[in-house]
Amino acid sequence: MPANPKYLTQSNWQRFAKITAAIVGGYFVSVSFHLALASWFNRVNIMITMAFSGFILWVVLMIIAFLAKSALKIWGLYLLLIFVFSLLIYLGQTYNPAV
């Protein structure tokens, strides 16, 4: 049974933005989150864990991107998260340098 057309995104721009937010934005949020963890905790353990949890987080972020009403809001949220995690990476490398 096909989806009801009234629930589908009508605008091609919105559809493109949601797809790119899901694939590209979700990937960058997932990687920046794990790198932020790695800058504060044991790098080797976090990077090994990222091989599995990174894909799970990426899929969750993809689902969230397609559930959102506005592609602009989801891109804004993902860019904000990337900025926060990048700040945590910077602070982690500053205050917790690798030995």
Rank of each mutant, 00 (worst) to 15 (best):
A21R: 00
A21S: 03
A22Y: 01
I23N: 10
I23F: 13
G25H: 03
G26N: 14
Y27H: 14
Y27D: 12
V29D: 09
S30A: 14
S30C: 07
V31S: 13
S32W: 03
S32R: 10
F33E: 01
F33K: 00
F33D: 00
H34K: 04
L37M: 05
S39I: 09
W40L: 15
W40G: 14
W40V: 15
F41W: 11
F41N: 12
N42K: 09
N45W: 03
I46D: 03
M47V: 07
T49I: 02
T49S: 05
T49D: 05
M50A: 05
M50I: 02
A51Y: 00
A51C: 03
A51Q: 01
S53F: 12
G54Q: 10
G54L: 14
G54V: 13
I56S: 14
I56R: 01
L57C: 06
V59G: 00
V60F: 07
V60C: 06
V60R: 00
V60L: 12
L61M: 08
M62R: 10
I63A: 06
I63R: 02
I64Y: 03
A65R: 01
L67C: 15
L67Y: 11
L67F: 11
A68T: 14
A68I: 11
K69Y: 10
K69F: 09
S70F: 08
S70Q: 11
S70V: 03
A71Y: 08
K73S: 08
W75T: 03
G76P: 09
L77Y: 07
L77A: 03
L79F: 11
L79R: 06
L79C: 10
L80Q: 07
L80N: 04
L81P: 15
I82S: 08
V84W: 02
F85R: 07
F85E: 04
S86D: 01
L87Y: 10
L88E: 12
I89D: 09
